[in-house]
């Protein structure tokens, strides 16, 4: 269960960030997920929903995702193409001398957070 381990690492990173930024509570987390990162989003969301209830910092926090299109570069003809459609073989010239330019990302882009000592935030918001 790969996704469970990933969620555990996301939450640990969020705790570090919370400490550095004086965060009391996190309302949402936005992930950037490459099309070929190998992460199964449905499973990840299930793991997140289970884990977040066990942790006060992220209790109830929403998990948002932005997909990054996977692009491969061909070193033979210097053209690029969509990895998901053609895999490792360049559709322009047929070469297999290609490498992934982007699309295997898996990173935390941003969080929405409520800070300690922030007069604008005050009580936890309900939306």
């Amino acid at each position: 269960m790969h996704e469970l381990g990933i969620v555990e690492h996301v939450i640990r990173t969020l705790h570090d960030v919370a400490e550095e930024n004086n965060v009391r509570r996190i309302g949402s987390v936005t992930l950037e997920v490459g099309e070929v990162s190998g992460v199964v989003m449905d499973l990840l969301t299930d793991c997140w929903n289970w884990f977040r209830e066990k942790d006060d910092l992220v209790k109830g926090a929403e998990l948002l995702t932005e997909t990054i299109e996977a692009v491969t570069v061909c070193t033979a003809c210097d053209k690029t193409y969509r990895t998901v459609d053609h895999g490792k073989t360049c559709p322009h010239c047929g070469s297999k001398e290609t490498y992934l330019l982007r699309g295997n990302e898996f990173s935390i882009k941003q969080i929405e957070a409520e800070l300690f000592d922030d007069p604008e935030d005050g009580e936890p918001e309900t939306e």
């Binding site: 690492h9 990173t13 935390i108 929405e112």
Partner: peptide
């Protein structure tokens, strides 16, 4: 709520 930009890979920790 304040938005904090992170751009950290998930395996950072």
């Amino acid at each position: 709520m304040k938005v904090i930009e992170l751009r950290r890979t998930v395996t950072d920790s």
